[in-house]
Design a protein around this nucleic acid. Structure first.
Lengths: 232, 232
DNA sequence: GTGACAATTTGCGCTAGCGCAAAGAAGGAT
DNA sequence: ATCCTTCTTTGCGCTAGCGCAAATTGTCAC
């Protein structure tokens, strides 16, 4: 699938870009595809590219030396990720592993190339800084939630967030459909798939959601909001 | 205390700045002082200034609606914080409260002014993006630690990190001295002051540290490293 | 239709660490 | 020296949620 300059306008970093700039970016980039479960880069790899997801879904995972992993961020189409190589002064490495949640395709832009464009395009720097502050605010909220909230509040929070980011209107049920496994949700919320399974089963019994294999359909988002407030 | 352009060169964002630019920043900024326990800004306030700490120490705290707080970041002299108002396109508010850990003084730079400088000084944008990526990496690590590590590993990690950021060579003991209360450390590690107190008392009995009121002297940092690795 | 595999469900025992209480210690003001 | 306030220490009961097991269910390949 060929990416056009018009397509790239969907990337918030490029909102103010001219067509010429977008052509230049496309000309200097390569397309890469990866099937589900594959990796665009690994934690510790040298950050030679930044990535724009053109289709599919990617999770950024960080591991500790014992192999335990957390999902730091989930990437949806037309979002940029892995940009620190274009920004850092020193030899930057990726702090997380980019793994596909489903078959995915990216546009890989050389870090050095984007860096040279950043030097002469203030709109690009502003775009990137805006993206970074959005991400900082998200991970700060998640950190605070992890430190202060019970696991059911965190899982409810995560479902609400996912409804906004990756939800699709369900055709069968009057609700919003999410395509994530229990393990996926557990990684995003600092818990285990068994705990997530118990919570989802409980909420299904209460009619708040309906579930399937690797699927969650949110029927009553307001009830989830009440759970996050600790009043359920 | 008057801040000179030469002083501002210690701020990593301004490393590449000319004297003229530094003079211009100083000319357009104000100095503010606050005693211990005071606030430079509150969570939710409109982000009209960014701040450079010229002396003292500041903690950035985020609360949930129930009043529970976490320390997202501790600021040391010559570090910039609260910069999102210069970067965001929308009406930005501070996502955290800036509270002094001791008597402190800042240089407050109007967000709109710095924004106008960012538009014509790529080195400033690069400096700011470098700062942001450093912070992103730190909070990602802390998030992963919170999600995957036992409380004693997290506290050991925090002490090691603090040794590098705020440690002073002790005159009385052969070690590095940190001036933080048990409550301060608890806020940085997502636990309670009682848990921190028990851990510190245990480590003091083992000769790893020595403590006083609002004071921790690290005698055997290598033992703390072993604790973080889960092999103690 | 069947078999294999992965995902999910559910139960239950266990423990990390919190909450709370109570007492002691340190430091500053008088 | 004394008093007051804040910080620290220590004990103990309790529970949230994890770890592990075992069984079930759903989906895909053949």
């Amino acid at each position: 699938m060929n990416v056009s300059p018009k397509d790239l306008k969907q990337v918030v970093v490029f909102q103010q870009a001219t067509d010429d700039d977008l052509q230049l970016i496309l000309k200097n980039s390569i397309t890469r595809s990866m099937e589900e479960g594959g990796f665009f880069f690994l934690q510790g790899d040298e950050a030679t590219y930044l990535y724009i997801l053109t289709s599919g879904q990617v999770k950024l995972m960080q591991s500790n030396p014992h192999g335990q992993q957390v999902n730091l961020r989930t990437i949806y189409p037309w979002e940029m990720f892995g940009a620190l190589g274009a920004v850092r002064n020193d030899g930057a490495t990726y702090p997380a592993t980019a793994q596909t949640l489903e078959d995915s395709t990216v546009l890989a832009v050389p870090s050095l190339f984007l860096r040279s464009m950043l030097e002469t395009r203030p709109y690009l720097s502003f775009g990137l800084m805006n993206l970074m502050t959005s991400y900082i605010q998200e991970i700060q909220s998640r950190y605070r939630e992890l430190a202060t909230e019970k696991v059911e509040q965190r899982v409810a929070n995560a479902l609400i967030r996912l409804v906004g980011q990756a939800g699709i209107k369900s055709e069968k049920e009057a609700g919003i459909e999410l395509s994530f496994s229990r393990q996926d949700v557990a990684e995003m919320t600092g818990t285990t798939l068994y705990t997530v399974s118990r919570l989802l089963s409980d909420w299904e019994r209460k009619g708040i959601i309906k579930t399937g294999r690797e699927k969650i359909i949110v029927l009553k988002p307001h009830d989830l909001v009440q759970i996050t407030e600790g009043s359920a």
